[in-house]
Design a protein around this nucleic acid. Structure first.
Lengths: 334, 334
DNA sequence: ATGAAAGCGCTAACAA
DNA sequence: TTGTTAGCGCTTTCAT
């Protein structure tokens, strides 16, 4: 099982080395007879084309860089698994780059990923600056931002309809008859966080409400502290819209275990994402579902389209996120 | 920012192309003056060596394949994140391969990963057959099994001391005064599952107990059903040792929400792993901690050692897993 | 210490 | 359709 080259296969099959290459190159022409002979010889020798050599010539490595900051939030590992499966089906594989969400770190990571000649880049849970995306475009590498948008940037993005989702979350809490509704937002440095907040505020503004808002930074501890602050304030909310499920769990933990409050009787909670954990009995969280499968499919398609046709324009795909009603909120009033 | 080659750098620096190569090759010799000139020219042109070309010659891609079956269990994404960070620091990156835990699927994945010329392989949450590991050895690619052992196989493995951990879990439940202790085991097709069960049974055997055992297959639904079966049986347990945290959460959900039982008053629960979620208030799970950082460090070191010196023998590393006492169990009797 | 030259294993023009 | 030829960008002998 040591290194078998196309030349060895060629000799055994009694054809030229390029004939072997053609047989293994999708979209190349060879006679049925040649294909037969080559496949047979290759089989016997255990030959498989060397990706590296192929990549060097074609400039295509069939690797996609996934740049990710953290995997605490169950949404991302879940997405990673799905993305990997979907890409694998198309003959691509994911090369993982972990980056702290800092300017310098991302810069460094970008450099590395260019070294590997990846065919495309998916960013998740990280913010890319515009000049970084410019660099990728300059290098001709398509980028898709997953679960993050970026206006006007020359990169594709796939998100759920966050403004709409935020609005519906707010509307639902209003429908349930809540009078004091607060928001622990997603990080305001992310479009996702801002959009959800905007939609939420719009819904409340329609009935003349101005919610109290604290930035939860997508972090458990920050969100938990925000919940305490909110409840200790002069106007404790009877419902909280939390910027994502990951934070919502922390909020529920704090509310129930630390403050001794009941959900939803004392405070109703609604999250965003619908990660698997949201359906588990311990939380049973009402939430806006981000349809992961559809987001993943859209991401893969957007990416592969641009890889195959670099001239095609970047896309900005938004997918509706339906409300999933569970036990962390009350019944809406009829 | 288009393709800059070493030749262009050479011309600009007024040296030969091989001089440029030497400057960028760790452990090659060049005069200070040459290094100076080359670095300067490279900087100005934005040159970086092409990994693919380098990989083709040296046979080293600086990529590590991570073969993983699922990322539901929080333990694995957590490990992935840490592994990626640790490897990245050493100049390696993770190429992800998702494989269903089936024979055929893993076979297919192995083929693919050989194509990519990865320098090493880490398997997590998958079982490798012996002939598969043989193939890797034949190809000269070192393998480390993460969180899975394999006796006598010619591959390294990193696990916690599962037998001991299982024994201590059992002993702890005995110390708490439990009289009917059951076990929902990890998948018996995995060494991890078997070892934990063995240690647990040993501890109980010492006091003449033979626990009722159901295989939870590492799956939530299976574990949940096992819990129901156990509680509906003629001898319902007052304590359950669950083969990992992921299943323990499902068991707690079922016990509390479906059967209306209290944890730990009616049934005490102890898990295995200490994933972050175990510390969250909603579960507050007593568990045997698998020290992730140490396991990751050991994995990376075992792998890199064998990459650098293929003659070095495979290692089997076991790391102690301490008991983390939380609210899902009672106080031990004094 | 440096440059010239020979490939690594493959794909892609080019002829035939 | 096929074989021949020329590289992809780099590392690594081998002389100098």
């Amino acid at each position: 099982m040591e290194k078998v080259t196309s030349l060895q296969v060629a000799e055994r099959a009694g054809v030229s080395q390029s004939a072997v290459s053609r047989v293994f190159t999708p979209g190349a022409s060879a006679s049925a007879k040649t294909i037969q002979k080559v496949r047979k010889a290759a089989q016997e020798l255990g030959y498989r084309p060397n990706m590296m050599a192929r990549a060097m010539i074609t400039g295509k490595s069939r690797m996609i860089a996934l740049v990710v900051a953290y995997l605490d939030n169950q949404f991302y590992p879940h997405a990673l698994e799905r993305l990997s499966n979907a890409l694998q089906e198309q003959g691509y594989h994911i090369l993982v780059f972990t980056a702290a969400n800092s300017r310098a770190d991302i810069e460094e990571v970008m450099q590395q990923l260019l070294d590997y000649q990846v065919d495309g880049i998916i960013t998740a849970s990280v913010a890319m600056t515009n000049d970084l995306t410019d660099r990728c475009n300059a290098a001709g590498i398509p980028v898709v931002m997953f679960n993050r948008g970026q206006d006007g940037a020359d990169v594709s993005s796939v998100t759920s309809a966050n403004v709409k989702g935020g609005r519906e979350a707010g509307q639902f809490l209003l429908d349930c008859g809540h009078k004091t509704i607060a928001h622990i937002s997603g990080w305001q440095g992310s479009s996702t966080g801002r959009d959800r907040q905007k939609g939420f505020c719009d819904a409340l503004a329609k009935v003349g409400m101005t919610p109290q808002i604290i930035d939860g930074m997508y972090r458990r501890e920050v969100a938990a502290e925000a919940a305490e602050t909110l409840m200790a304030g002069p106007n404790p909310p009877d419902a909280i819209f939390v910027g994502n499920d990951h934070m919502a769990f922390a909020v529920m933990d704090t509310l129930r275990s630390k403050l001794g409050l009941r959900v939803p009787e004392d405070v109703a909670i609604i999250g965003y994402d619908d990660v698997p954990l949201a359906a588990w009995a311990a939380y049973d969280l009402t939430t806006m579902r981000q349809p992961l499968n559809r987001m993943v499919d859209a991401t893969v398609e957007a990416l592969l389209t641009r890889i195959e046709d670099p001239a095609s324009p970047p896309r900005h795909i938004e997918i509706d996120s339906p409300l999933i009603r569970r036990g962390s909120t009350k019944e809406p009033m009829t």
